[in-house]
């Protein structure tokens, strides 16, 4: 495929010895291919996040592929009380990514759905359960992949300004992602990270919760924005686009000069 050539070139340009040791210890040459699962929301609403993620991974020398049959992880149905319907979509995911060695996801929430909840959905279906169990260790939330697999903290990005980091709930509490994104941000040239208080409180998105209880959800978003405002940061960064959609929506409604960015977008910046 075309991009492979490009990747080889990238590899030549990078100091490969320092990275990718998990994938191919000691080797300066070929790295294991990673498969992108961009999630339905990134695909449809925030493709720039997927593009940024692709750029970062390719700059690090990873051959990237994109299984074209991918759609959604099934979480919307699962969280709305329809595990069967979620199971149908989950099965599709399992089939689509059956052969992928590394599945990198720009969302802690979708990654958690696959890693933790597929086994709940298929608890009584032995064969699919096995499949779900075998795929779980291959699923990597983007920031964790960078730190734990690629072994990098400094991806050579630069950014001009003050940012604050929002801990999205599923990344934080289900995937235990807390320090990684902060370490990556701290290595970005020109970027100042200023913590909001509390960073760990929910933004109020919650999937269909946001439309079933719009006033409560909106209230939670406004509380979040108050915490953001206190930092005087111009940008809010997170590893989940759905939270950012909620936060940005409320920011725009309040006509505030703050923007939201996915971590991948910051790391792709030069």
């Amino acid at each position: 495929m075309g991009e492979e050539k490009g990747n080889v070139k990238w590899q030549m340009n990078q100091k490969c010895a320092t990275i990718g040791f998990h994938a191919n210890p000691g080797s300066k040459a070929v790295k294991t291919r990673v498969s992108l699962f961009v999630t339905c929301i990134v695909d449809q609403v925030f493709p720039q996040v997927g593009i940024a993620m692709t750029q970062v991974l390719e700059r690090l020398g990873y051959p990237v592929d994109f299984p074209a049959a991918q759609t959604c992880c099934g979480q919307p149905a699962f969280n709305s009380g329809y595990p069967e319907e979620a199971g149908i979509v989950a099965r599709h995911f399992l089939n689509t990514f059956r052969d992928s060695e590394y599945i990198v996801v720009p969302s802690g929430s979708c990654a958690s759905m696959i890693v933790h909840h597929y086994t709940d959905i298929f608890a009584n279906e032995q064969k699919t359960l096995e499949q779900a169990r075998s795929i779980a260790p291959r699923v990597w939330e983007f920031s964790r992949f960078l730190i734990e697999v690629a072994g990098v903290e400094d991806v050579g990005a630069s950014f001009d300004g003050v940012v604050t980091y929002h801990d999205s709930c599923h990344s934080l509490r289900e995937m235990h992602i807390k320090e990684g994104p902060r370490r990556l941000l701290s290595k970005v040239q020109g970027l100042t990270l200023r913590e909001m208080e509390p960073a760990e409180e929910c933004c109020g998105f919650g999937g269909t919760f946001s439309v079933k209880f719009p006033e409560v959800s909106g209230g939670m978003a406004r509380t979040k924005i108050e915490s953001i405002l206190k930092t005087e940061a111009g940008t809010v960064v997170s590893v989940d686009s759905s939270c950012l959609m909620q936060i940005q929506g409320a920011i725009d409604r309040a006509r505030l000069p703050i923007r939201t960015m996915h971590l991948a977008e910051v790391l792709a910046g030069r």
Partner: peptide, 26 residues
């Protein structure tokens, strides 16, 4: 209901699927 509290995000002009397909050309 979404819009009662927040601005509605715009769907992207080009989805990631489309972007990827376009770049697959060498």
């Amino acid at each position: 209901k979404w819009a009662s509290q927040r601005e509605v995000p715009k769907l992207a002009k080009t989805s990631f699927h489309q972007w990827w397909k376009a770049r697959e050309v060498p």
